[in-house]
Design a binder for these strands. Structure first.
Lengths: 188, 188
DNA sequence: TTGATTTTTTATCATTTGTTAAAAAAAATG
DNA sequence: CATTTTTTTTAACAAATGATAAAAAATCAA
C-alpha cells in the first residue's frame, strides 16, 4: 500500500482523478536529522507530509527554545501563518531523526484548491481537523495540570516520549525541565 | 450596507450567485440575553453569525464554569466538534446580551460545500482563519503571563472588558478571579 | 574502556497562583 | 431611597512552579 496515498485519504478520500493530480504535485525528499525545514520569521513555501521520521516545531523566546509540536509518521508539517496568509511564521521546524517527506509547494496546492472542488473540500477538512487538534491542545493547557498532561503523553504518545529528550517534552508541556523531573519523581 | 453580507465576504468574497445561495439558507433570529444557543454534550446543528450582541462559550469543570471564548458582532459561533465531526461539543454558548443572529443548518452548509467550489473554498478559509486564532490563543497561554494576557485584552478588546464581569474574564485568562483582582491592583 | 559531554535529577529559595474567608463596592430590586 | 444581592477586592496561608546551582546518570567519542 502507498503510505502517502493513505495519508491523503485519511483526511478525505479523493476520487482517482483528483488524487492523481495531487500526487503528481508531490516531491519525495529524504532529509537528514538536524535539518531545519521551516524557519521562524521566514515564509515557508511548502507543505510537508511525513512518511517517516520525527520532527519538532519550536519558538525562540527569552527562556531559550520552547517546543510546541511534535510530528511523526502520518502528520502534516507546515507553518499555518505561511500557508494560510503568506506571512512569516512564529515557529521553526527541525528534524529530530532522518526523515522521508513528501512536499508540495503552497502555490501548487492553492491552485488545486481553486480548480478542483474535491481538493478544496479536502483542504477544508484538513484545516478543520487541525483546528480540532489545536482546540484540544488549548483545552488541555487551560484545564489540565502539568502532571495530567504528562500522563496523557505517557498514554497517548509513548513513542514520542521514547524518541525525544525530556527537555523538549517539558517545554511542550509548558513547564521547565526541572518541574518535569519533579513530576516524574512524584508519580512513581 | 448589509452587515451579514459583509461578514461573509470578510472570510472570502463570494461571487454573486454563490453569495445569494448562502444568504438564502440563512435565517435571521433575535434572541434574548441569557438564552443558551449551544449546550455542552449535545450536538449543535447550526452555525451562527453574530450581527449584534455578545456571547460567551464556557465549559463546566470541577471549579464551576470556565469561559473559553467571547463572541461579538462579526464573529461566527459554533461548536467545532459538532459542525466538523457531528459529535457532541465540549462547550456551552450563552448570550450575555440580547442578540441578532443569522443561522444556517449544518446540513445545508455541508450541502453547499459539496456542490459549489467557491463555497467550499470559503469554508476552507473560515476553518483556516479560526485555526490561526486558535493557534494565537494557544501561544498566548503558553508564552505569556496572566498579567500580559490581561494587558492584551485591555488593548485589543476593551469593548468586551466593559461589557463583561471580571469573573468571566478571569476564567477566560486561565486564572481565578482573586488572582485577576491582584493583577489589576498591581498594574495600577 | 576512559574521559568528556550531555541529559536528568535533586536541593534550596523566590515567585506566582490557588483557596478560603471576609470586607468593600457596585448593581439590582422593591 | 433603603435594602438586598451580586460583584470585586483584600488578606492570610498553602501549593505549585520557576530559577539557580550542583550532583548523579546517561550518552558519546576517542
Amino acid at each position: 500500500m502507498n503510505t502517502i496515498s493513505n495519508q491523503i485519504d485519511s483526511i478525505l478520500p479523493l476520487p482517482a482523478v483528483e488524487k492523481e493530480l495531487l500526487l503528481s504535485r508531490l516531491q519525495r525528499i529524504e532529509v537528514a536529522k538536524g535539518k531545519l525545514i521551516i524557519s521562524a520569521g521566514k515564509i515557508g513555501h511548502h507543505v510537508y507530509f511525513i512518511e517517516g521520521g520525527l520532527a519538532r516545531a519550536f519558538c525562540e523566546n527569552q527562556r531559550g527554545q520552547t517546543t510546541i509540536w511534535f510530528g511523526q509518521e502520518g502528520d502534516v508539517m507546515l507553518s499555518y501563518l505561511s500557508f494560510f496568509k503568506d506571512q512569516p511564521g512564529y515557529e521553526s521546524i527541525e528534524l529530530l531523526e532522518n526523515a522521508v517527506l513528501y512536499r508540495i509547494s503552497s502555490k501548487d496546492l492553492q491552485e488545486l484548491y481553486r480548480q478542483h472542488i474535491h481538493i478544496a473540500n479536502w483542504g477544508r477538512k484538513f484545516a478543520e481537523y487541525e483546528l480540532l487538534k489545536a482546540e484540544q491542545r488549548f483545552m488541555d493547557l487551560q484545564f489540565k495540570t502539568a502532571t495530567e498532561r504528562y500522563q496523557d503523553l505517557l498514554v497517548n504518545s509513548p513513542a514520542i516520549l521514547k524518541r525525544v529528550q525530556l527537555g523538549y517534552i517539558a517545554s511542550y508541556l509548558g513547564i521547565t525541565q526541572v518541574s518535569l523531573s519533579r513530576i516524574r519523581a512524584a508519580i512513581k
